[in-house]
Computed example of a mutant assay.
Amino acid sequence: MNPIIAGAARLSRIPWLCLCILGLTLLGATTEALAHAVAEGDKGYIQEITGVHLLPFVYLGAKHMVTGYDHILFLFGVIFFLYRLQHIALYVSLFALGHSTTMLAGVYFGIGINSYLIDAIIGFSIVYKALDNLGAFQRWLGYQPNTKLATLIFGFCHGFGLSSKILDYNISPDGLLPNLLAFNVGVEVGQLLALGAILIAMGFWRRSPSFLRHAYTANVVMMTAGFVLIGYQLTGWFVS
């Protein structure tokens, strides 16, 4: 029997990694804007400074990615069944390309999207990737959607999530482009750090007999976390 399908009978045996994923999401749900939130100190800094400040923006970008659990959940789903480094590099690069393009263009050209709606779409990206990992689309549609294209498109969505938040903070146009480029460099540094941590944890887990037994459960938990994000954001949109 397919080990992923067989895992459906073991939902009560949730591995520690799944608990960490769900716990991270629920903890993040208590923050100010759920996804793409910026700490109050960082928010004030962005609003008050003018001119070029490269290193601070590199730091802010790295901090955002490392603490951005929505990005981490999506990356976790993207690399879940990727074993070759060249495949991991390809998918992560596609995500980075999409994320960087819309973040830079969105802020520079003032393209804003309602934060609640774009963060709900980001939650949907997590649900989509979990369903993809579970083989749901092959069963439901009879074919496998292009995973590379999906990763790129959802990368665009993640970038708009961040650009919309930066626009809400009225960042100064003085030094805007250099600061944005520095921020994006920081985001990529943070993504590499987060990816490295995920790969180390996944490497240990994949060598254990529990990986295939609990792969189904891990993706169900990830999908649940995505639905939590969607529900939280849509509720915020309706009541705001």
Rank of each mutant, 00 (worst) to 15 (best):
G135Y: 02
L162S: 12
V187F: 09
P15M: 05
L55F: 12
H64G: 07
V107S: 09
R206C: 06
G110W: 01
Y108G: 04
L17E: 14
K129M: 14
Q144W: 02
Y216F: 15
F95C: 08
P15H: 07
T67G: 13
Y128S: 11
D42P: 10
S93D: 06
L75C: 12
A39Q: 13
L60G: 15
T102S: 07
L26M: 15
L22K: 04
G7H: 01
F57A: 03
V239L: 04
A6F: 05
L17V: 04
A218G: 14
P209S: 00
V187D: 00
L19N: 02
Y128H: 08
V107N: 13
V127C: 14
A29Q: 04
I4L: 09
Y69S: 04
S125C: 04
L167M: 11
A29I: 06
R213A: 10
M1K: 07
Q86Y: 05
G98R: 05
D70M: 07
N133M: 12
M223I: 10
S240R: 10
V228S: 02
Q191M: 09
E188K: 00
H99F: 13
A150S: 12
A35T: 14
L177N: 13
L177F: 15
E32W: 07
L149G: 09
A6S: 15
T147N: 13
L141K: 01
L90V: 09
I118N: 04
V78G: 03
D168P: 02
Y143D: 12
F124T: 12
H158S: 10
K165D: 10
T217I: 00
N133I: 05
G203F: 06
I166C: 05
Y169R: 11
F238I: 09
A194I: 06
P178D: 13
Y216I: 03
P3W: 02
P178G: 06
L85D: 15
D132T: 12
R139D: 15
G106L: 01
V228W: 05
I198P: 00
I230K: 12
P56S: 03
A197K: 06
I200Q: 07
L90I: 01
V52G: 07
L55Y: 14
V239A: 11
N146V: 14
A182V: 11
L11F: 11
